[in-house]
Nucleic acid binder design. Structure first.
Lengths: 209, 209
DNA sequence: GGCGATATGTAAACGACGTTTACACAGGTG
DNA sequence: CACCTGTGTAAACGTCGTTTACATATCGCC
């Protein structure tokens, strides 16, 4: 999808070009549903630049891909997590709604999810290391909710570490999401049934009787 | 790692060459720990053939990679699952041991695990479709164990579908394994602690009081 | 107002990759 | 013996990420 050459950006306007590159890359990623379809040359064509020009804005392809996904994932907090929290009755109901939102976001953006959470460590640019993933991974939102549940005495008394509780929950929804992303044609129970059963079981195990 | 040219196989001996190719590819995969390091040219060099000769034995690179991983995964049943079952006291203890073996196998063969369970559907050769994964995924071993637990009345009475129980368990261990494979440097609890907490919680949720 | 520094961009190439095509040859079968 | 087929090679194709050398426009500064 070649496009008319992009007008050269003025000095200091490079950030606009970088945004256009992100838009183009995201468009290719969403449109094709495959990371392989996003090539530097393809992005350059789509944005009206030369391949080499991409490297004025991103050090390599991995960083570009992660930047695309980070933008996508940033929206999950505002568009998905906050509404889920606001409509929840209590800190346990909130977790159920967050789990639902998380899985839905993952299967609706499968290639973004895979790039973010299912790649080799080596393919992860430094600035998207573990700490940052903790935020985009919704951990920052979930932890206070878990803490609130602890404070209200909702969990089994021996469970005092919010990180461990949040981790168990994340692993459960991440398992479902990554399996759905990697094996969408699997003869598995419907996604909502899976999720319901898993969250029920995990919460049953975590909550006080 | 170029090697002396391989003696031409006699008619009908092509299977030996295919095995040598699998060995070479597995060696590269294990040695490098990265799928990217396994190139058709590299495999050809390691086995003493020309790149084009690889295609006499495997239709494409994906199929070769999956064949390598399938061989690796076949060993999990014999070497890992069976011993775990034999040393178990009861069908619930068996599940704990299987979960342990599963996660350990995954983190010890991370690239094999990723290729098998964390790739795009499109990259999966037809013969390694969902049904086959059900076997290599230990489902064939787990299902009877779950059924036995149901028969013994160990699970909550409303849980009557062994597939759903097995699925919930698999999603939990798959979540842990795939997270460990994709993000080994994550500031997470130690793997055994995670696993213990998750399996405890899930089983607590699944089992009768 | 010119000048140099720098941000932005291009043209061309490099080396590696998966794969295909055309060809070669050996060995079992009729 | 002739032929088919399994096995293998040489050479090429097109694509990819990336680098290098070079161009040019714009801004701050004297």
């Amino acid at each position: 999808m070649k496009v008319a050459p992009r007008a050269r950006a003025k000095r200091g306007e490079g950030e606009r070009t970088a945004e256009a590159i992100l838009d183009a890359a995201d468009g290719l990623l969403v449109g094709s549903g495959s990371e392989d379809a996003v090539s530097i040359r393809g992005v350059a064509d789509a944005v009206g630049l030369t391949p080499a020009a991409i490297y004025r804005h991103f050090p390599d392809k991995e960083t570009l891909l992660f930047a695309v996904c980070a933008r996508h994932f940033d929206s999950i907090t505002e568009d998905v997590a906050v509404p889920a929290l606001e409509s929840a009755d209590d800190p346990i109901d909130a977790l159920r709604r967050l789990a639902d939102a998380y899985v839905r976001f993952g299967v609706e953006n499968p290639e973004h999810y895979r790039i973010m959470f299912m790649r080799r460590q080596d393919h992860r640019p430094d600035q998207y290391a573990a700490e940052r993933v903790l935020e985009t991974g919704l951990f920052g939102v979930v932890l206070p909710v878990v803490q609130q549940g602890i404070d209200e005495g909702r969990y089994r008394p021996e469970l005092t570490d919010p990180l461990m509780i949040a981790w168990v929950l994340w692993m459960a929804v991440h398992g479902i999401t990554s399996a759905a992303v990697a094996m969408p044609n699997f003869p598995a129970p419907p996604l909502d049934v899976q999720l319901r059963a898993t969250v029920d079981a995990v919460l049953h195990g975590l909550l006080a009787d």
